[in-house]
Structures are given as structure tokens and as C-alpha cells.
Nucleic acid binder design. Sequence first.
DNA 1: ACAACAATGTCGACGTCGTCAACATCGAGT
DNA 2: ACTCGATGTTGACGACGTCGACATTGTTGT
Lengths: 200, 200
Amino acid sequence: MVRMPESRPYHHGDLRSTLLAGAERTLREKGAGALSLRELAREAGVSHAAPGRHFKDKQALLNALALTGYDRLGQALDSADDPALPLERRLTVLARAYLAFAIDNGELLELMYARKHEPDASEQMAAAVDRTVGSLERVIASAQERGEIVAGDPHHLTLLTGATLQGIASFAAGGMLDPASALDGIEELVHLLLHGLKPR
Amino acid sequence: MVRMPESRPYHHGDLRSTLLAGAERTLREKGAGALSLRELAREAGVSHAAPGRHFKDKQALLNALALTGYDRLGQALDSADDPALPLERRLTVLARAYLAFAIDNGELLELMYARKHEPDASEQMAAAVDRTVGSLERVIASAQERGEIVAGDPHHLTLLTGATLQGIASFAAGGMLDPASALDGIEELVHLLLHGLKPR
DNA sequence: ACAACAATGTCGACGTCGTCAACATCGAGT
DNA sequence: ACTCGATGTTGACGACGTCGACATTGTTGT
């Protein structure tokens, strides 16, 4: 009897998304350095040069991946934020959401912060960053209007809290800090941030 | 083997250091991704496999590079710290030193925080990290004893301030924040950290 | 003094990778 | 129905990391 080789259709149909999905899995499992276009092509059951049709080069794929990351992060933050909460609680919840994302998307987050982009892809990136930072800045600004937060350039204040979060996240991602205990420490951390290190 | 009239000595004499120096220069000029053992060998005037005699593989070279980074950072911090200064000023000076290092050793710093090491090289790394973090933790602990800083696990407090610094540094390195203005903002940043975001 | 030996460097090979150009196949719109 | 753009394939090229076999050197024990 004649064995038909399992022939896939000549066109994959949804290669671009498949590549991005595979890339993210590899990123999560084996790190950013172990990401190979040819390997992704193999996993997708497609020839080694096929990815070139969807991404001009490897960097382009990484950029696209970073963009999806910003989408997911923004969504996580937006859905975690609850304007009805009192300030400290509201910040705690937001911080926990960010940290949680950072912890199980560590490598992806690094990608998002890496600035290897030509100025063309830069615009989308910058917009994505602004959108993400915006959700934090809104909280700060509104609290400031209500006098719950010290006066000063809201951008500076956002920078401080954002930096602290990013730092903790990077510690956790680097293994310098146990992820679970990092999440547990969030409440105390936000409290310290709000009330300062000096005794009152 | 036929001797060329003006051939270099068969042995380089100080290849290991030369490779590390070259690697750091490449790191600074062209980024971590553009680092090639063969290229380094070429620059050192040596055959493509010679680096293998000094570094088991590429990762081993990167680890060694990270270790020198910890040395330089530790030295910068130690020489910047002045126990005679009042707390806020002392922290400001320390923070500025860290940020300055981070700004013109951005790629190297990333290497230092990347945990790609097998457990063998990990020990030296961990020790180096502890030594670096220690200089900050000492400041915190001593201020705490004098009652200048709120009570609590000094390790937590160190984590908070360290994370904030690391976050700012990573923003500056990522181009998300102008390095010069980051340095300028240090004073305000330390003040906010000490006094908190809430009005007193 | 000198022979063994370890350290260091060279050479050639292998497999993998990213990228390109030339060609093949498909599907959408005229 | 035909064309044409989008998508996939094939083969090639040069660069890379790593390995094993070999060459050259400095050192060390006798």
C-alpha cells in the first residue's frame, strides 16, 4: 500500500503567531541566548528560511516579542488596578501584579527593557512603554491631587516607585532573591516607600 | 616549521588579561551580543582556538569578566563611602557612585546580574555579590543602631534601597532616562527614599 | 645538563547559526 | 482564467563555538 508522506499544506497558515508562541516558550524554558530561528522553524514544521518572510531578521522577531510582552503587562496592570482602593492598598495591589508578571516572564521583561532597536521600531516601543508607565503615573498623580502624596514632579515620583519595582523584579529574576518571599515582602515594601526609612 | 623572519613569539605571554581587556572594550563599544571569541583572538594576534586554553567556553570568559566587574564596583563603592558624613549625605554619595558606575558600565553590569552560571562558578559570584551589597548593608545597619532609620530587618531595608538604585540604573542604561539627569536627580531620590512619599 | 612534563598556542574539522538569492506554490482580486 | 503578491523551499555563504591532534615553549626533578 502506498504510504502518503504526511504532507502539510505548502503554506502554514499562521506561521507568524506560531513563531512568536514558540519563541516565547523557548524564552521561558531555555533563556534568551538559546533562541534560534532555525530551531523555531523546525518546531513549526517549516523550512529554515521561512521565518525570514515574517521577520526581517532575528532582532525583528525579538522586537515583536517585546511588543506582545508590553500588551500582556499593560493588560495585567490595568485589570489589577482598582481606583476605589485606598492609596497604600492600591499601590500594593499594583506592585504585586507587576512583580508577579516579572517573576514568570523574567526573560521576556529583559527583552522589553533592552534597547537595541533602530529608530523605526523604536516608536512602537516607546509608545508601549509610555502606556505601561502611564497606569502607574495616573495613580501617583491622582493621589497627589488629593494631597495623599508629597508635592513634586509626578514624573519623578513615578520614576522612584517604578525603579524600586523594577529593581526588586530584577533581583528576583536574577535569583538574588526568592520569588515567593519577594511577593510576600511587597506589602512591607510599599509601606516603606510611602512612609520612608526615617522614623517619624 | 618554517620560521617567518618577523614572527611573534609563539607564546603571547599574557593572553588571559589581554582577552579580558579586549572583551571589556568590545562590551562597552558594541554590546554583549557582538562579543566573539574568534574576534578577540584576532585582536590579540593569536589563533582562533587559543582562548580555549584560558577559558573553557564563552560563558567562562563572561563569568571572569563579571568577577572583575564586581571588583571594580566594590572598590568604587568602598572608596566613595565616608562614614563621617551624616546619613542622608552619606547615602547620596554612595548612590551617586553606584549610578555612575552603572552608567558607564551598563553592559558589564548586566553581565554581573545574569545568572547563567553552573553552581561551580556560582560561589565566587555569590561571594562577590555579598561583598558588594555588604557595603550598603553596613551603612543601613549602623544608621539603624543610631536610631536614624526605622526598625526592621536590615536586610529588607537594604533590599529596598538597593532595588531602587538598581532600578534607576537599569532605566538609565535602557535609555528610558537621561543619564545626566539621573545623576542630578540622585539627591532628591535619596531624600524621597528616606522621608517617604506621604506628606509628614 | 637534560629529559620529561605541563602550559600554552596552532591547525583543521564539525555542526550550528543568520542571512541571502533564486525558485516554487498558493490564493485573492481583476 | 490569469496574474501577481504573499508565503514557503532549497542551497549557498561566511561567521561562530568547540573539539582533538599536534607544535612549541618554560619548568622541574634528577
